[in-house]
């Protein structure tokens, strides 16, 4: 990679880290569940499904439209349809039950199985398949991806900084918010959309980074600067997380293993899964 590409790679990894951290914080604050994240709620599986669907359509109809952009558009369309369909239904802001997290993880596994089967079938037909998707990396970045991910990162950060003071109250639950005449439901749409969009952009462009949205918020809350201060967690936190993520990615680039670059998504999967297990065990001990 030349210097220009390295800078773009750094920026892309920074924006992705920031987006996923913000998406994770949003999920946890809204659901009041510290195990919630775009990954554990099944958003990553949903986006991978959009990628698979677009790839299938592209193969069948011989479209030349790039996969990453086509899948992103499909993801947005899916979101719009979902929002329209659920507009009239009330989403109760209560602590989400653990089984919904389990459902999200199972859905991810289901999509993963579907992904593997399709990969096998495409292999037998010697057709192209985006197998790189499953463990994300920043090997193939370009200017458009950098601009789009940077734009959405800025949008999400602006929203977070604008509403972080009100969202601070969400940590105490719906009943508390309603007593203050603050309607928590008005944050449902934007928060879920931003979490989903953050997952859609990073997955469609760079691949899956499992559990990153779970890992970073917890990492931040270990530091007193971020602990008990949602405003900092939602504004400065993503910048710190993005920097950490970019540094890890640079590390994988400059220190390949036996000449091969380890996808940074593999590292985050191991760290994120380990954290998930630790959280579950800690929860059992506390209860």
């Amino acid at each position: 990679m030349n210097e220009y590409e390295l800078i773009m790679r750094f920026l892309c990894s920074f924006f992705s880290g920031a987006l996923l951290c913000l998406g994770g914080s949003f999920c946890q604050v809204y659901t009041q569940n510290e195990m919630a994240s775009p990954s554990t709620l099944g958003f990553s599986g949903l986006v991978v499904l959009q990628v698979i669907i677009f790839h299938l359509l592209k193969t069948i109809f011989h479209w030349s439209f790039p996969l990453e952009y086509g899948a992103l558009v499909l993801s947005f369309l899916f979101l719009v349809v979902l929002l329209l369909l659920t507009k009239s239904k009330r989403m109760s802001f209560t602590k989400m039950k653990e089984h919904l997290i389990l459902l999200g993880i199972c859905f991810n596994l289901l999509v993963g199985s579907f992904f593997s089967i399709l990969y096998f079938l495409f292999l037998t037909k010697a057709l192209d398949f985006p197998s790189y998707l499953w463990f994300g990396s920043f090997k193939f970045v370009n200017l458009e991806m950098t601009i789009i991910s940077g734009f959405f990162c800025l949008l999400a950060l602006l929203y977070a900084s604008r509403f972080s003071s009100k969202m601070q109250l969400l940590v105490y639950g719906a009943e508390y918010c309603q007593n203050l005449k603050m309607e928590p439901l008005k944050f449902v749409g934007p928060v879920i959309c931003l979490s989903y969009v953050s997952m859609a952009i990073t997955t469609c462009f760079f691949g899956v980074f499992s559990f990153l949205g779970l890992l970073f918020p917890h990492l931040l809350r270990h530091f007193s600067f971020f602990s008990r201060n949602l405003k900092r967690e939602l504004t400065i936190g993503p910048l710190v997380s993005g920097s950490i993520f970019a540094i890890i990615d640079q590390f994988t680039y400059f220190f390949p293993l036996n000449g091969a670059e380890l996808p940074v998504g593999m590292i985050t999967s191991i760290l994120g899964c380990s954290l998930f297990i630790v959280l579950l065990l800690k929860k059992k001990t506390n209860s």
Binding site: Q28, V29, Q32, N33, E34, K95, V171, Y172, G173, E175, Y176, Q178, N179, R221, S227, R228
Partner: peptide, 14 residues
């Protein structure tokens, strides 16, 4: 103002 049944559940160490 309402006090409903059930504990106050808080995310984090507030």
């Amino acid at each position: 103002s309402y006090l409903m049944q059930g504990p106050l559940h808080v995310l984090g160490d507030y």
